[in-house]
Simulated scan of single mutants.
Amino acid sequence: MFDILMYLFENLVHNQSELMVDQDELTDELIRAGFHHDEIYKALAWLEKLCELQTTDDKPYLHYVKDTAEPTTTRMYTFEEQQRLDVESRGFLMFLEQINVLDATTREMVIDRVMEIEANEFCLVDLKWVVLMVLFNVPGKELAYEQMEELLFETPEGLLH
Rank of each mutant, 00 (worst) to 15 (best):
F2C: 09
F2A: 11
I4W: 05
L8K: 08
F9I: 03
M20K: 13
D22E: 13
Q23A: 10
T27W: 00
E29M: 08
L30F: 01
I31E: 13
I31W: 00
F35E: 05
H36K: 14
H37N: 09
K42A: 09
W46H: 15
E48H: 14
E48V: 04
E52T: 03
L53K: 03
L53C: 07
T55Y: 11
D57C: 00
K59G: 03
P60N: 07
P60Y: 06
L62T: 05
L62I: 06
Y64E: 06
Y64T: 04
V65Y: 09
V65K: 14
V65I: 09
T68R: 14
A69P: 00
P71W: 11
T72Q: 12
T74I: 14
R75A: 09
M76H: 11
E80I: 04
D86E: 10
E88I: 11
F95K: 14
L96R: 03
E97D: 12
Q98C: 07
V101R: 04
L102E: 05
A104D: 13
T105D: 07
I111A: 09
A119E: 12
N120Y: 01
L124C: 08
V125W: 06
D126T: 07
W129F: 13
V131H: 00
L132N: 06
L132P: 02
M133W: 02
V138Y: 10
V138T: 10
A144V: 01
Y145M: 11
E146S: 12
Q147I: 01
E154C: 07
P156T: 11
E157I: 09
G158R: 10
